[in-house]
């Protein structure tokens, strides 16, 4: 068993090494292709050629490239330290993880639930490594009196879209200041793999805008994989939910946008008939 595998892998290895050398060339080609076919987002385009790498794998030999996220330099080599897709932007090599828990970054928008209220602010659960905290100053522009009833701003169980302003040792500081950051009333919650969020959003928001337009729903997407949908009818919300679930499931396929468009059109026809 092992022997067979080894032979296959040896062949694969040889191929990989060849691919590494070709990175520079294929990158240029990609750029041209993208310009020629504006309908395909660069992500969709590249996924055809990108490959999966594993921790410890040497992904670039030589000093022509720089190690980015998910890689380190080791002597003359760049080594992957994460499992994911190898990506090259300019001279920067990085690994885009496809699996694993959400880990917050500064400026991420997350959606979470108020689970506690303290005299100095609100505690938020957003499925992160720790809870988030919104101070009074970051929670509202209003002046808050001492001993004021904080539930009138955000109550226990409220859902909020917030921005990560700092990832600290035991907490993540969140802010409600910024466009679109607010309490999310009603609506339907969908959870998706955090690594699929960029696909749900699409290039410059193309995917989420498509779903919004076709379903007439209001949609807020958290980097933490929590998505809020609010439409006029529950049916519309479910169509949007299904579309998002489809994006998650088929994120790696080509012409994803077309597929989702088709799905949405079909659901709309069905809805009208009903």
């Amino acid at each position: 068993m092992i022997k067979e595998d080894k032979m296959k892998i040896d062949r694969k290895k040889a191929k990989e090494e060849k691919e590494i050398k070709e990175i520079k060339v294929s990158k240029k080609e990609e750029k041209e292709q993208v310009e020629n076919s504006p309908r395909d987002s660069p992500r969709e385009r590249e996924s055809k050629e990108r490959k999966l790498v594993v921790p410890g794998q040497i992904v670039v030999k030589g000093l022509d490239f720089l190690p980015g996220d998910g890689t380190i330099r080791e002597g003359d080599n760049i080594v992957a330290i994460k499992f994911g897709l190898l990506d090259t932007v300019g001279r920067l090599v990085k690994v885009i993880p496809l699996t694993g828990a959400y880990y917050p970054k500064k400026e991420d928008i997350v959606i979470g639930k108020i689970i506690d209220i303290t005299p100095v602010g609100w505690v938020v659960n957003f499925n992160g490594p720790s809870t988030g905290f919104i101070t009074l100053a970051e929670g509202t522009r209003e002046y808050v009196e001492k001993n004021a009833d904080l539930t009138k701003y955000y109550d226990f169980g409220d859902l909020v879209a917030a921005r990560v302003i700092a990832v600290k040792a035991r907490t993540v500081d969140l802010s409600m200041k910024g466009p679109g950051l607010r309490k999310l009333d009603g609506g339907l919650i969908v959870k998706v793999n955090t690594h699929k969020v960029p696909r749900v959003i699409g290039r410059q928001g193309s995917m989420v805008n498509l779903i919004k337009e076709e379903t007439n729903c209001n949609i807020a997407v958290g980097q933490n994989g929590i998505i809020w949908i609010k439409g006029r009818t529950i049916e519309a919300e479910l169509v949007a939910r299904n579309a998002i679930k489809q994006v998650e499931e088929f994120s790696h396929t080509n012409d994803l946008t077309e597929k989702i468009k088709e799905l949405l059109t079909k659901s709309r026809i069905k809805e009208i008939k009903e």
């Binding site: 009603g186 339907l188 919650i189 529950i234």
Partner: peptide
């Protein structure tokens, strides 16, 4: 954690079978 948010939604949907 997000699930319980859907309680009301689930209820109204179940009412429609």
């Amino acid at each position: 954690m997000a699930e319980s948010f859907n309680k009301k939604k689930i209820e109204s949907f179940l009412e429609r079978g």
